[in-house]
């Protein structure tokens, strides 16, 4: 906007001071940590690889948030639960296949079977969510669908708890994914490689789907302007369901990839990854597909690297306890400095 002046008022000043202070704190902490040199280069490298693997899971979940937000302008608060249902399905499918001996005899097929079932179940959960909880409320005041989403999230969480029990269940181990790969100076475990590759594959697939197919074009049209899209003969309801379905598929895939990394499932597991993936979506610019992927990666790396890099220099004991604090601080900082996110359109702010 030409001739726009920066309003320097009390609030902005306060926010900039707060943000600047946090950034300076982090920078000085990193400096202290690095000159202290207690953490070896290969440890840093491991942290980064772990961060990228975790970040690609966040990215997959974040895509669900971003797609839905791009079309409905609502935060699907229950998306973390869709992810959790995928993870639980993956657990049961994997256990069943393991008991049937298929994991040993044909591990690759078993992996894809598990992936397919968990994606499918997550998709069904996401579609039902849209149909039952959100569609009747389209057009209601802003807070109403958000509160519904919180309710749906609780419902899905505690249904899982009632169905599957409240304990942590350990995931059967994929022995084929044991071992490490080293690419020159970089070494990563096979599991991490699988997670990263699968996530990248899905994201490329999504990108092609959105940009190359008819349905993808319709999705973009609906997110641009629903009424005009409807006038052009696009069935908006169907596109919205498709969007939820795609978000569900990706969350289901994220579910199995997450269990590959952490090896356990719990009814509460969707909460934190859900919030963090939302953070990632905002960081990348909500509504922006590439932004969500980028935001996920950045957040994963910051979360793994941050506690050690920013805090251990100050002598904070067991800094990893504070990794969620760092992730949420990222969210607050982004919303203060660049609410439209890294790749978001500026006029959206």
């Amino acid at each position: 906007m030409p001739g726009r002046r920066i309003r320097l008022n009390f609030v902005n000043l306060f926010l900039w001071l707060l943000g600047g202070g946090l950034l300076a704190f982090a920078a000085y902490g990193s400096f202290l940590t690095l000159i202290e040199g207690r953490i070896q280069p290969n440890q840093w490298q491991n942290l980064i690889v772990a961060g990228v693997a975790l970040g690609s899971v966040y990215a997959l979940i974040a895509l669900g948030y971003t797609l839905v937000y791009g079309i409905l302008f609502m935060i699907n608060f229950a998306h973390g639960e869709v992810f959790m249902w995928g993870a639980f399905t993956a657990f049961f499918a994997a256990t069943a296949l393991n008991d049937a001996g298929m994991m040993a005899s044909n591990p690759v097929l078993a992996f894809f079977l598990v992936l397919a079932t968990s994606m499918l179940v997550s998709m069904v959960v996401a579609i039902m969510l849209e149909r039952i909880a959100y569609r009747p409320l389209r057009g209601a005041p802003r807070l109403v669908p958000l509160i519904t989403a919180i309710g749906a999230s609780l419902f899905l969480q505690y249904t899982a708890r009632g169905f599957y029990g409240s304990g942590v269940r350990a995931y059967p181990d994929y022995t084929i994914f044991d071992g490490t790969i080293s690419l020159g100076f970089l070494s990563l475990s096979v599991k991490q490689a699988v997670v990263i590759l699968a996530a990248v594959g899905l994201m490329v697939g999504l990108y092609l789907f959105i940009n190359r197919t008819r349905t993808g074009r319709a999705m973009r049209a609906v997110s641009e302007d629903k009424d005009v899209a409807a006038m052009m003969g696009i069935n908006v309801d169907r596109i919205i369901v498709t969007t939820f379905a795609i978000g569900g598929l990706l969350a289901g895939a994220a579910g199995i990839l997450y269990t590959l990394i952490f090896n356990q499932v719990l009814f509460f597991m969707g909460f934190l990854p859900g919030i963090k993936a939302f953070t990632a979506a905002v960081l990348g610019g909500i509504g922006n597909v590439i932004g969500a992927a980028l935001g996920g990666l950045i957040l994963g790396v910051v979360e793994q690297l941050g506690p050690n890099l920013f805090l251990s220099g100050y002598g904070v004991p067991s800094p990893n306890q504070l990794k969620d604090v760092i992730a949420f601080s990222v969210l607050v900082l982004v919303l203060i400095f660049r609410p439209s996110g890294l790749l978001g359109r500026k006029e959206n702010t």
Partner: peptide
Amino acid sequence: LIYGVVLVVMML
């Protein structure tokens, strides 16, 4: 679980 149902049903 009941809270979840209450929230959704009330909103609907």
